[in-house]
């Protein structure tokens, strides 16, 4: 430390710093090793998207196929269908983005602490339900024969629609059941942001005659903007990344025309019909689009609002 840093060779200085903190590298090692094996090694494996992969020849041994499989996807009828379905679901979900914010603003306004605690607990609870149980729940509730909704219809002497077997209702059921399950949980982060507001701000506003609504409008909402923008960037960046788990469980022969999305198609082509290269190509196409969308949205957000991911 008492040596003037500028006289020491930078390499030596780096080495000394690494040596002094070798314990930290030991702490980092397990996670880094796992990422190299199970995240970076598969990234090398995407070359099979450009090859005629056969397990017997291995990744390096398989012959090159160029863009054959990308071409095949672009020209198949599933191309526009899966992209359209994926986009419909994610844009629809994006519309529900403000709901957790509204919920957080509501919770922040509750003055009775016991009610507030109860309300928060109840809104968080559905988050702990697994996707399988959630879809099971939907099937139970919406069963036209003996479900809750079916019985409700029958109470009024009407014929219940087959909600879970309807292609037209698929995206609505998907999105609103997600809101039901996760809006409360997603509001936590906004509640935490609101808890950092300086109470003297509210007092000053009240003294100046601001109504409750004005305090929300001019203190709470601006306070939430940076958090909201960051989360929005992530959401838009994942526009073509609708998760596999729930959609796959909700799929059936009756709704398949609107429930086949990119990730379920990748799974079917890859693991159910063993067309590894074709599946990897579709998957890579999807990942690359998401990646560039994220970068684009991030750049726009930085220009427009000054907040960005990096």
């Amino acid at each position: 430390m008492n040596i003037n840093p500028s006289t020491v060779h930078p390499m030596r200085r780096a080495f000394r710093q690494i040596h002094r903190n070798r314990g930290l590298y030991a702490l980092l090692l397990p996670a880094a090793a796992l990422l190299l094996c199970f995240a970076y090694k598969p990234m090398y494996g995407v070359v099979i998207a450009f090859k005629d992969f056969s397990p017997a020849l291995g990744i390096t041994g398989s012959p090159w196929a160029g863009f054959k499989y990308f071409d095949k996807f672009f020209h198949s009828y599933q191309f526009s269908r899966t992209i359209k379905n994926t986009l419909i679901i994610s844009v629809y979900s994006l519309v529900t983005f403000p709901i957790p914010i509204v919920l957080a603003l509501m919770i922040n306004q509750m003055r009775t602490n016991r009610f507030k605690r109860f309300f928060q607990t109840v809104t968080y609870m559905p988050h702990f339900i697994s996707t399988v149980v959630m879809v099971g729940l939907l099937l139970i509730l919406f069963s036209p024969g003996n479900g809750l909704v079916g019985n409700l219809y029958r109470l009024f002497g009407a014929e219940a629609p087959n909600v879970m077997g309807s292609a037209g209702l698929f995206s609505s059921v998907y999105v609103w059941s997600d809101v039901w399950q996760h809006a409360g949980w997603d509001s936590i982060i906004y509640i935490a942001a609101l808890s950092t507001v300086d109470p003297s701000l509210y007092e000053a506003a009240t003294v100046d005659g601001a109504s409750r609504w004005q305090r929300i409008r001019y203190i709470d909402i601006p306070m939430l903007m940076p958090t909201a923008v960051t989360l929005l960037i992530l959401r838009v960046g994942g526009l073509l990344g609708v998760g596999f788990e729930k959609v796959y469980l909700m799929q059936n022969n009756l709704n398949i025309s609107s429930s086949e999305i990119i990730s379920t198609y990748v799974y079917k082509i890859g693991l159910l019909s063993n067309q590894y290269s074709f599946s990897a190509a579709i998957n890579l196409f999807n990942t690359v689009i998401n990646f560039f969308l994220l970068i684009l949205v991030n750049r726009i957000a930085r220009k427009v609002s000054g907040s960005s991911l990096w």
């Binding site: 903190n21 990422l35 995240a39 099979i48 960046g237 990748v266 799974y267 590894y276 990897a280 999807n286």
Partner: peptide
């Protein structure tokens, strides 16, 4: 830790995997 040499690059190694991955089949083969 701010005094970790190579902190930026190592962070990037981690964060990159949030936004890019090999996908289903390459991971399955791995």
């Amino acid at each position: 830790r701010k005094d970790l040499f190579g902190r930026k690059a190592l962070s990037l190694l981690f964060i990159f995997t949030m936004f890019f991955n090999g996908g289903l089949i390459p991971t399955f083969l791995t």
